Computed example of a mutant assay.
Amino acid sequence: MDCYATLILLFFGFSFSSCYRFPLRKYYYINTLMTWSDAQHYCREKYTDLATFESVDDFKRLKPDFSYSWAWIGLKDDPKSWKGVMGNDTNSWRWSATSKTSQTGYHNWKGGDPNSGGGKENCVIMGSTRGWHDVSCQSLKSFVCYTATNQNEKTYVFISASKTWHSAQAYCREHYTDLPTIENTKENSDVYSAKPGNAQAWIGLYRVPWTWSDNTQSSFRFWRSGCPDNYLGNQFCVVENSLHEWNDINCPYKFPFICHQVLRLRTMIKMKIQSDADLADPATNIQILKQLGAELTSKGWTDFNLQWKMQPRKQEEKKLGEY
């Protein structure tokens, strides 16, 4: 026999949609001098996190009485994720062919690299000694492409034409497989052997620097002219001025800072469910909520919680009788 129940579904969370941009954030200026790490800890304890900005519209949510020369925001390029290591964080080195971080952790950095010189060295060449060096992706270099066979073997070819890293990537993907992935000493030697010994050549290693403290995946940036520049090689945290222009600076310096609090939405949805199952059974309720959650996730909703309240059975039966 079919069972009917009217459920009041309580939805807590946010999503991304074409009509409204979530999450909405409320910003708080903290006029206390702290290092970037201490400011992050404070914001996570008192609010949600150090400030994340995803568009210029977010700047409008700062109160008019905000007044500061420089203040920390939540953007950082943690050198522990990329300096002399391969790492597995969002700002770590990745291979062009997979867009993923290294599987083996193998690397062959030379000459003090990588050092993010000038704050703009996010692509990698192989030099004359088999060693790797980070350089600007806009530099013009020759490069090596590879072709993968069905037997999982790779053949390498040297291209003498000078191109930027992204142009070299596009060329390799059009004519071969990709720029080379190097996960061990043998592959490093094979790529080296494919090029003239003194040539500098692009390989498939790159990274996307800077990550938000709350792990928001946003590429929005509002750098001050000439920034980031990683002056003296130690500027891995970001401050903004009263014009909302950003500058990279040493993380141990002390500045006031901006926190944000995510404003969550509470939505109530009334739905009628027909089922052979006992809808009053807690296990059935949990299963239905899981199915609803999976459906919402597939539609692009994120970071939400679902709860419901079931209307009393007598009240529901009375309403059904009225029809």
Score class of each variant (00 low, 15 high):
residue 168 A to Q: 03
residue 184 N to L: 06
residue 161 A to R: 14
residue 183 E to Y: 09
residue 128 S to H: 12
residue 140 L to D: 12
residue 232 L to R: 13
residue 179 L to A: 01
residue 152 N to H: 08
residue 176 Y to C: 09
residue 228 P to F: 00
residue 176 Y to D: 10
residue 137 C to H: 05
residue 163 K to P: 01
residue 150 N to W: 08
residue 166 H to R: 15
residue 220 F to T: 01
residue 130 R to Y: 13
residue 223 W to K: 00
residue 172 C to F: 07
residue 166 H to T: 13
residue 214 D to W: 02
residue 117 G to E: 09
residue 142 S to T: 04
residue 234 N to E: 05
residue 98 T to I: 08
residue 99 S to V: 05
residue 119 G to H: 05
residue 227 C to P: 05
residue 145 C to T: 05
residue 148 A to I: 15
residue 102 S to P: 02
residue 165 W to D: 11
residue 185 T to G: 07
residue 168 A to W: 02
residue 131 G to N: 08
residue 126 M to I: 10
residue 113 D to L: 04
residue 116 S to H: 11
residue 172 C to D: 10
residue 106 Y to G: 03
residue 123 C to E: 10
residue 174 E to Q: 12
residue 216 T to L: 08
residue 171 Y to I: 13
residue 182 I to Y: 01
residue 163 K to G: 02
residue 211 T to F: 13
residue 166 H to N: 12
residue 191 V to Y: 00
residue 186 K to Y: 14
residue 146 Y to Q: 06
residue 132 W to P: 01
residue 223 W to M: 03
residue 128 S to N: 10
residue 135 V to A: 03
residue 162 S to Y: 15
residue 199 A to K: 11
residue 141 K to C: 12
residue 215 N to G: 06
residue 176 Y to P: 04
residue 231 Y to H: 10
residue 215 N to Q: 15
residue 135 V to P: 00
residue 145 C to S: 07
residue 158 F to W: 07
residue 177 T to S: 14
residue 225 S to I: 10
residue 157 V to G: 03
residue 155 T to C: 03
residue 139 S to T: 13
residue 228 P to C: 00
residue 169 Q to G: 14
residue 100 K to T: 13
residue 104 T to Y: 06
residue 118 G to P: 03
residue 133 H to F: 09
residue 218 S to A: 00
residue 120 K to N: 07
residue 127 G to H: 05
residue 160 S to E: 15
residue 145 C to L: 08
residue 199 A to D: 14
residue 155 T to G: 05
residue 99 S to W: 05
residue 170 A to R: 15
residue 219 S to T: 15
residue 223 W to C: 01
residue 130 R to V: 10
residue 117 G to A: 10
residue 186 K to P: 03
residue 136 S to C: 11
residue 206 Y to Q: 06
residue 111 G to C: 03
residue 177 T to Q: 10
residue 190 D to M: 07
residue 126 M to L: 06
residue 191 V to R: 00
residue 178 D to R: 03
residue 126 M to Q: 15
residue 204 G to K: 00
residue 155 T to E: 10
residue 133 H to N: 09
residue 215 N to I: 06
residue 113 D to Q: 10
residue 108 N to D: 12
residue 211 T to Q: 12
residue 163 K to Q: 09
residue 204 G to P: 00
residue 233 G to P: 00
residue 224 R to L: 09
residue 117 G to Y: 11
residue 223 W to L: 01
residue 139 S to R: 15
residue 211 T to H: 04
residue 168 A to F: 09
residue 153 E to M: 11
residue 103 Q to D: 11
residue 211 T to K: 13
residue 130 R to D: 08
residue 103 Q to L: 14
residue 211 T to M: 15
residue 125 I to S: 02
residue 165 W to H: 14
residue 112 G to V: 04
residue 194 A to E: 04
residue 221 R to L: 07
residue 153 E to Y: 11
residue 133 H to L: 12
residue 97 A to M: 11
residue 150 N to F: 12
residue 119 G to M: 08
residue 202 W to D: 02
residue 106 Y to S: 09
residue 136 S to I: 06
residue 160 S to K: 14
residue 125 I to W: 01
residue 214 D to K: 01
residue 146 Y to A: 06
residue 155 T to I: 11
residue 150 N to A: 10
residue 237 C to N: 01
residue 114 P to D: 04
residue 219 S to W: 06
residue 151 Q to T: 14
residue 133 H to A: 12
residue 105 G to W: 04
residue 108 N to Y: 13
residue 185 T to Y: 11
residue 154 K to Q: 08
